[in-house]
């Protein structure tokens, strides 16, 4: 019974990781940048939701404000900090991303102060009993909302014109540009979608843990990133798979081994997978042309 209970917990946290990992992977796929600020966009998304909820807005407005606000934030970050560095060495862009992450964290610290804020219960928690297993409605909502957005994203990327443009630009930016695709606006769009998803992850995370703090994005951000790499960075289904795997590994490690070793186990598994399959679970091996 405990096992099934843990499965459900893993599913909840896993779907949050998966949603955040999607943004990481999309951005990486299109500009080959590990967007370290992604976790902070998630944190900001959680704060936007906190503000909206504190103002007494309805649930749908809280989600909308948070996701749109974060999308705008993500676009702004891309324009201001990353775009000038597109031709610069990769490491410079990476440092900029780390700098951006620090900046947002400290900005939140100055604006909202260090003490965690209690997230208003925009959705009342009601436990649902199935046999002897108890599931919170938040768990079900988290899982459902995440899966719906994953399906929407998959549909968007495979069927719509801007989605196809995104795939084209991540395959080959120059060629895509020659085919008449506006690479710049496609990249901006990618940031907008990725950031909105991060905000979604942030709201779900805040609902699950009922708290919002400036450091909220650090650990989930790092883990979502691990999830993206685990699944094969740049590959969208990979991020989903990686997210769920990470959620399960973490919950089971906490439940059956030790909470204190959980993080080491998560990273240990990452290292193990990468040493066996260097490009992640769904990654393709590319041979360098000589």
């Amino acid at each position: 019974m405990i096992f099934i209970q843990q499965m459900i917990n893993g599913l909840q946290i896993g779907s949050i990781y998966a949603v955040i990992a999607l943004g990481y992977t999309m951005v990486y796929g299109i500009i080959k940048l590990i967007n370290f600020a992604h976790g902070e966009v998630m944190m900001m998304g959680a704060y936007f939701a906190f503000l909206a909820a504190s103002a007494g807005m309805p649930v749908w407005a809280v989600f909308l404000i948070s996701m749109v606000g974060s999308a705008l934030l993500g676009m702004a970050i891309e324009r201001v900090a990353y775009k000038p560095l597109r031709e610069a060495p990769r490491i410079s862009a990476l440092i900029t991303a780390i700098g951006m992450s620090l900046f947002l964290q400290n900005l939140a610290l100055v604006i909202f102060k260090a003490d965690p804020k209690v997230m208003p219960r925009i959705i009342p928690t009601t436990p649902i009993n199935i046999g002897s297993i108890q599931i919170s409605n938040i768990t079900i909502i988290t899982f459902t909302v995440s899966v719906v957005f994953m399906i929407l994203l998959t549909f968007f990327i495979s069927k719509t014109k801007p989605g196809k443009a995104m795939r084209a630009v991540s395959e080959d930016k120059e060629a895509a540009t020659l085919m008449g695709i506006n690479a710049n606006s496609t990249i901006t769009l990618t940031f907008a979608i990725g950031s909105a998803l991060a905000a979604l992850g942030g709201i779900l995370y805040a609902l699950a843990y009922t708290q919002v703090a400036p450091t909220l994005g650090v650990l989930p951000g790092l883990k979502a990133f691990v999830a993206a790499v685990l699944g094969g960075i740049g590959i969208i289904p990979g991020a989903m798979i990686g997210g769920f795997i990470l959620g399960f590994v973490e919950t089971f490690a906490k439940a059956y081994i030790s909470g204190r070793w959980a993080d080491a186990i998560v990273f240990g598994i990452l290292i193990l997978v990468l040493s066996v399959k260097p490009t992640g679970i769904l990654g393709k091996n590319v041979r360098e042309k000589v």
Binding site: L85, P89, A93, G99, M100
Partner: peptide, 16 residues
Amino acid sequence: LLIYSFVLVVMMIFRP
């Protein structure tokens, strides 16, 4: 740290 990170980003943009 806000200033530190800000300087860092600006530095990277102008002198990568």
